[in-house]
Amino acid sequence: MALSKQEVLKVGTLSRIRLTEAEVEKFGTQLSAILGYVDKLRELDTRNVEPLAHALPIHNVLRPDEPRPSLTPEEALGGAPEAAGDFFRVPRVLDEGTSA
């Protein structure tokens, strides 16, 4: 199953990656190969198989609600490309908030 150029560009946009013509070509081929592999799996009859939510056969791994020490702001910001005081500094964002 080959991906169209539009589809490759959309995936690029969703991932915030700007792609060159050559990259559209290259990633289009690679992504299509992955989808081809998934298509192969699709040939299996899974009508009577429950979808798997998780690869491990365990559930309910919980921790008690007990606070533990956090990093210091200095440590937290240590790896950031840019900081402003105690804050991470990022390019100006105009859109007023995305949902949580």
């Binding site: 937290a76 840019e82 402003a84 005081g85 105690d86 804050f87 991470f88 500094r89 990022v90 390019p91 100006r92 964002v93 908030g97 995305t98 949580a100």
Partner: peptide, 17 residues
């Protein structure tokens, strides 16, 4: 999510996580 604020001056935003 964290909190995004716009810096008073300068062309950037700041984030508190």
């Amino acid at each position: 999510a964290g909190k995004l604020m716009h810096a008073e001056h300068g062309n950037y935003s700041i984030v508190d996580l």
